[in-house]
């Protein structure tokens, strides 16, 4: 199921671990990327073959972690932190504002497939709150106005987002 390029990346990842099962998390990340951001039962089975573990094990692992998704997300995945430090600095206000503006509740994806909102726990940037991650890019010290500006750009599709690449996908130079 991996594309030829994906297969190459998978082999590189596997070569970095003593046991194939150890590579399960990075391989799941890779599979999720190949399948436009979410995992399906077929992909879980494929990952199980690649890592030489039972498919039930892969399902058990994949459902344990919050970053593995089992349904398509919007083109823009907005993760907004309302945890302790961001909460003190107004994270909830940002979340409410985004929900209202996009007419979408946290935990859902808009029908046109453009946006998903997720209320998340600490993103590890507590001094720079409130924090929102758009796909994989951090936006810090947000105000309602700054958030609006980001969403304006996203709606007009003029925002440049960094390419989605996990470091392990990239072959090492050595």
């Amino acid at each position: 199921m991996f594309s030829p390029e994906g297969q190459k990346k998978a082999e590189h990842i596997l070569s970095r671990y003593p046991i194939k099962m150890n590579a399960l998390l990075p391989i799941l990340h890779l599979a999720q990327r190949e399948n436009k951001g979410y995992l399906t039962p077929e992909w879980l089975e494929h990952v199980a073959e690649v890592c030489e573990v039972p498919a039930t094990h892969v399902e058990g692992v994949a459902t344990f972690y919050t970053m593995f998704k089992f349904r398509p997300l919007g083109k823009y995945h907005l993760q907004i932190c309302t945890n302790i430090a961001c909460g003190l600095c107004g994270g909830e206000k940002i979340l409410e504002h985004v929900e209202q503006r996009l007419d979408l509740h946290a935990g859902h994806t808009r029908e046109d497939g453009q946006f998903s909102i997720e209320e998340v726990e600490c993103l590890g940037a507590c001094g720079y709150g409130p924090v929102m991650i758009v796909n994989e890019e951090y936006h810090e010290r947000l105000t309602v106005e700054a958030t609006d500006k980001i969403i304006d750009e996203l709606e007009k599709n003029t925002k440049e987002l960094p390419e989605k690449i996990l470091p392990l996908d990239r072959p090492l130079t050595a």
Partner: peptide, 29 residues
């Protein structure tokens, strides 16, 4: 010496060292 970066997948509990090792092995953390 080789060094490999291993991405987690969103579980606070994996900061506990034995949960981290289980996660690194390819299990639930």
């Amino acid at each position: 010496l080789d060094i490999t970066l291993h991405p987690g997948a969103g579980a606070y509990i994996c900061g506990e060292e034995t949960a981290l090792l289980d996660s690194l092995e390819g299990r639930r953390g």
